[in-house]
């Protein structure tokens, strides 16, 4: 009782590769943003430990602007919040992509096998 709509194995492999690559891309972006957010956290910690009237500089679009800790700190915090928002969006994109992969797998009854020639 073959499923006539089941695509040939080569197509399935390609579709799987596409799913895999999309998941990897999203994961990569999430780790990049996680690192940026961590950087911002360290900077915020450092700035908070210092007198607010200390001179501080911000690089915006290639232009270095002078200010104080007091003026720079809120900007850094706002930036960090922005990054976290994007991370949340990406994470929901990730789970949607994972669901898509799972339902594709179920629909075509695909079994994911580890490459037997890969090093154990």
């Amino acid at each position: 009782m073959a499923d006539d709509r089941r695509p040939p194995p080569a197509d399935l492999q390609r579709q799987y590769d596409e799913f895999k690559s999309k998941l990897e891309q999203i994961n990569l972006k999430i780790s990049e943003l996680d690192a940026e957010s961590a950087d911002h956290a360290v900077v915020i910690k450092t700035l908070t430990a210092v007198p607010p009237d200390r001179k501080a500089y911000r690089l915006i679009g290639g232009i270095l602007t002078e200010g104080t800790v007091e003026t720079v700190l809120p900007a850094v915090k706002a930036n960090k919040e922005g990054i976290e928002k994007v991370i949340v969006q990406l994470k929901s994109e990730l789970s949607r992509a994972e669901k898509d992969l799972a339902s594709w797998q179920a629909k075509h009854k695909v079994q994911i096998v580890r490459d037997p020639t890969a090093a154990m």
Partner: peptide
């Protein structure tokens, strides 16, 4: 008597 150090996240502190 002062230097500026890059902290990251596009911020430099004296």
């Amino acid at each position: 008597d002062a230097v500026c150090l890059w902290l990251g996240a596009n911020v430099m502190l004296e």
